[in-house]
Amino acid sequence: MLARATGRSPALAAGALALVLGTPLALATTERGRASATIVQGVVVTEAVPMSFAAVAPPPSGGAIVLSTAGTIRSSGGFVFRGTPAPGAFNARGLPHHPTSVSFSTGNLVTGPGPAMRLGAFTNNAAPTFDGTAKMDFAVGATLVINPNQTPGQYTGTYAVTVNF
């Protein structure tokens, strides 16, 4: 009767130890996660064609003229246009099929012999993604605000195009 009792109690103790030691190993859980990165050899934007409104004869009251991405100019009455206007043309290179967007600087001025003129309200025909060869070419239009009695002469200015990756 005594022998049976001691024989049984080591068996119970072993069972309890197996639980304590075995539990952390059995319950440790390992999972594989995924990690990735995309290497880009730079995003490059180059201007292929400068924007030009060509020759403009404004009425004394001035006004806004709008150059479209297709290269046409429209305005209110009284304006005379000569020459061949051109939308700005840009070539961007990024990553194949990657989404992209275009944004422009603000507060741009075109300067010359008379008061500076404001250039803004930019439009563009950029695709929403780079193509399969990582290219995205696009045209840029804008609105030029001509002041009343604007002094005749050559006016030039700059604007910044940002291709957002």
């Binding site: 319950l27 440790a28 859980t29 594989r32 996660g33």
Partner: peptide
């Protein structure tokens, strides 16, 4: 040397008491 494109792989996470 680091060619453009997508790179991917795996790593392991083990949680224990």
């Amino acid at each position: 040397t680091q060619t453009a494109g997508n790179y991917s792989g795996t790593y392991t996470v083990t949680v224990n008491y």
